[in-house]
Measured scan of single mutants.
Amino acid sequence: MDALKSAGRALIRSPSLAKQSWGGGGRHRKLPENWTDTRETLLEGMLFSLKYLGMTLVEQPKGEELSAAAIKRIVATAKASGKKLQKVTLKVSPRGIILTDNLTNQLIENVSIYRISYCTADKMHDKVFAYIAQSQHNQSLECHAFLCTKRKMAQAVTLTVAQAFKVAFEFWQVSKEEKEKRDKASQEGGDVLGARQDCTPPLKSLVATGNLLDLEETAKAPLSTVSANTTNMDEVPRPQALSGSSVVWELDDGLDEAFSRLAQSRTNPQVLDTGLTAQDMHYAQCLSPVDWDKPDSSGTEQDDLFSF
């Protein structure tokens, strides 16, 4: 819950932080000083300027060897085509990944977070970031790969997607708890209302004896509580940590079903599988986004697919 609360507080303090972009060759504004600060901008989305290598189908939802083989196929196909790589912007948030063309600003792909089953910074092609997700059109699994400016960037994108998945799962947990509370309150309110109706004398007997209905007592009954809980029953509950912020979080049926399955089948359902080692994760978390744009010590960066 700490990640969720800190993310909400950060967004309320400075929503404009989320509009910064990394990996864009110096076009961005001043960047936060450390990885923790940038992680807090996830709610509205972190932007990464990358190059799209392509996509291939895979048979399993996750796995280092599986993704490595898929990336190898994608890279080989991209090299064989001889075409310049498409420059894209990857927007990562707890909602998922939005992929747009840098030149036309046209939407290429919009992947809900619950469809993503794996992401990684490839070991062999260490400047490549990739994720595996279920197609929104059918049940097939797709591996999408992107060329980053350097290994640090690939690791940073991988960690960002993993963190977005974690925050999304926490949102789901909060929403589920809130819905259970509202359902319980609604049920209790309905029981109270039913009890009051059972003990209320029939209207005919009131008229016969000349008694008047006590409207004041009726007004004191917990009807307002019942209506408050039943009027918006169809509205999706939102985490309290975000009250007053500009973010509107809505959970669709697909996300609810997917996270429910994860909660039942996995020990740590909030953790998205990645190909990063503990050492890689520690190294990337210690980086400032400013470091992502620094040239690798191995030599001059080449803006070309064939540089790796």
Results as ranks from 00 to 15, higher is better:
E64W: 06
F169S: 02
A263R: 06
L206P: 07
A3N: 07
K30N: 14
G82Y: 04
L305G: 08
Q264E: 01
V226Q: 14
N229R: 07
H282D: 15
R182M: 10
R95D: 05
K176S: 09
P201C: 02
S140C: 10
S6I: 09
G254N: 09
T41S: 05
K127E: 00
S227A: 12
D296K: 05
G244Y: 13
L4R: 14
M46T: 12
G54S: 00
L66V: 12
V111M: 15
S265R: 14
D280Y: 06
I108Y: 14
V247T: 14
M153A: 09
R9E: 13
C119N: 01
K204A: 13
A121V: 00
L215K: 15
L31T: 11
M281A: 11
P295E: 02
P202R: 15
R196D: 08
E216S: 14
D296R: 05
V207G: 08
R13D: 12
A133H: 11
M281C: 06
Q20P: 08
A78D: 00
T231R: 02
F306K: 00
G24E: 08
S243N: 07
C148S: 13
R95F: 05
S67I: 14
L206H: 06
L287V: 14
A121H: 02
L215N: 15
G275H: 05
E216N: 12
L43A: 15
F259T: 02
L251G: 06
S93F: 13
H144T: 02
Q240P: 12
L262N: 03
E188V: 02
A219P: 10
E64I: 12
F259Y: 03
L276H: 11
G8M: 00
N110M: 15
D198A: 09
V111D: 01
G26W: 11
D234K: 04
K184M: 08
W35G: 14
P222S: 15
K83S: 15
L242G: 11
P237H: 10
S175P: 07
K181L: 12
V157R: 00
K150I: 02
E301W: 04
R27A: 13
M153V: 12
L66T: 03
R95E: 02
P202K: 10
Q136K: 14
T225R: 11
S288R: 09
M124L: 07
A69T: 15
D304I: 09
V92D: 00
A68T: 00
R29Q: 04
A7V: 05
V92F: 01
I97R: 00
E257F: 02
S81G: 10
P15S: 08
T120N: 12
E301T: 05
C148Y: 00
A195G: 06
L53D: 00
I98C: 14
E65Q: 14
A69K: 12
T231G: 07
P94C: 07
T231I: 14
I116T: 01
P295H: 09
D296S: 11
E59A: 11
A263V: 10
F129T: 08
C148D: 00
Q240W: 12
K72L: 04
R182E: 09
V167E: 15
L47D: 11
A121M: 10
D183L: 15
T231W: 02
V248G: 08
S49A: 12
K152W: 14
F171T: 02
E188I: 02
M46S: 12
D256N: 15
S6E: 12
Q302A: 08
L66H: 04
F48R: 04
T230Q: 09
S21P: 11
R261N: 07
M281K: 11
A69H: 12
V192Y: 02
R39V: 05
K72Y: 11
L17G: 09
L213S: 04
I113P: 03
K181A: 13
D256M: 04
L206Q: 11
N105E: 11
S298F: 02
R238P: 14
S265P: 03
K166G: 08
S49W: 02
L255I: 10
S245K: 04
E180P: 08
T231E: 03
I116F: 05
Q155Y: 08
M233H: 09
F48S: 01
D296A: 05
T300S: 13
A278C: 09
M46P: 11
H144C: 15
G254Q: 07
I71M: 01
T218Q: 07
Q163M: 13
L107A: 02
D253P: 02
K166Q: 13
M55D: 08
V192M: 03
Q279I: 08
D126W: 00
S307L: 04
L90Y: 00
V207M: 07
Y131G: 00
A278S: 06
E188P: 03
N34A: 10
M124S: 08
F169E: 02
I132K: 01
A263P: 03
P239L: 14
K91L: 05
R27D: 15
A263N: 04
G63H: 01
P32T: 15
I116Q: 00
K84P: 07
D291N: 12
